[in-house]
Design a protein around this nucleic acid. Sequence first.
DNA 1: TGACTTTTGTTGCAAGTGCAACGATATCAG
DNA 2: CTGATATCGTTGCACTTGCAACAAAAGTCA
Lengths: 164, 164
Amino acid sequence: MTICDFRLAAFLPYRLAVLSERISRRLSRIYEAEAGLSMAEWRVMVHLSRCGAVSVREIHGCVNLDKPRVSRAVGRLEESGLVEKTSSPTDQRLLVISLSAAGRALLDRILPPAIAYESRLLAALSSEDRVALDRIMEKLHRVMDADPEARPRSRLDIPRDAAE
Amino acid sequence: MTICDFRLAAFLPYRLAVLSERISRRLSRIYEAEAGLSMAEWRVMVHLSRCGAVSVREIHGCVNLDKPRVSRAVGRLEESGLVEKTSSPTDQRLLVISLSAAGRALLDRILPPAIAYESRLLAALSSEDRVALDRIMEKLHRVMDADPEARPRSRLDIPRDAAE
DNA sequence: TGACTTTTGTTGCAAGTGCAACGATATCAG
DNA sequence: CTGATATCGTTGCACTTGCAACAAAAGTCA
C-alpha cells in the first residue's frame, strides 16, 4: 500500500499515446478501408508524392520507419503496382523508388479526405491553440533531443527555424 | 504532378504519432530494460496499483488495451509472480486480478524513475503550456468523441470535470 | 425448468514488428 | 590492385497485434 496515488490517466506519455493512437486508427480507416494501405505504406506513398524518386534509406530517414519496414512496404506497394523500383545507374546498391501513375492516382483520391480529417481536428482548435501546440510539441522533442538514450529525431521532423 | 505540396512532417496525426512513439520508446527503457515489462504489462501493473483487485474486463476498459492483450499480459505477469489471479466467488466467469507482494515491490522500484521522466518532460513546459496542452488534448478528444467512426474513449481517460 | 441471449476470458491465426545478421556493392588505405 | 571497412537493401526469426471465433458461466423469459 505504498504508491497508490499514481493515476495512469494523468501520465503524459500515456495520454499522448492514447490520443495519438485514437487519431491514427481513425485516420487509417481512410487509407486502409479505402485503399488497402497500412500505415507504413501510407507514409511511404505520401513521402514519395512530395520527394520524388528516392532510396529506401532516404525514406527510412524521413518518415520514422525502420529500414525493414520501409523495404517491405515498398515491396508490397510494388506488387500492387503503386510504386516503381529501379536500381540506380550510378550506384548498384541504391534503389530508386517512385510513384507510378496508378500510385499518383490513388494518392489523389485518398489525400483529400485525409487532409479534410486533419482540418476537422484543427478546426476544433483556436489559432492560439495551434501556435501553443506547435511550441509544446517542439519543446518536448527538445527534451528528447537532449537525451542520449532517446531515439534521434528524423531529419524532416525538425522544423526549419530550429533556433538553438 | 498534382498534389505535391503536402508535407507529412506538418500533418498533425503524423506529428502526434512520432512524438508519442518517441516518448513511449524512451519510457519503455525504464520498465523494459529494468523489469522486463512490455507496455501492456506496464499499463496493467500501474492500473492494478491504483485500482486494486479487478477483472480483465475492467482493465480492458480502463487502459486502452483490447481484451486479448490484457489477458495475455496478465498471464505473463502471473507466470512472473507479479500478479495473482483468483476466480470470483460470486461469478465464476470473473477473474479477480491483483498485484502480488513482488509486483508491488517491483512497481515501487520502477514507478519513481518513470514519474521522474515525466517530470523531466513537464519541466520543459511553462505552466501556461501545461494548461494549454490539457485543453488542446481534450479538444481533440472531443472531436473524436463526436465521430461515430472513431473508437470510443476509455472511461478513465475522460476528465472528471467533463463539462459538455 | 429449459431454450435463448449476453457476458467473460481465452485461444487461433494471419499479419505486422523490431532487431540482428546477411549478401552485394561501393569506398578507401596501403 | 588488394584486403579491410562501410553502406544499402533484404531476409530470418521470434515476438506482438488485432480481429474473430470460442467455451464456460450468468442472466432472461417463457
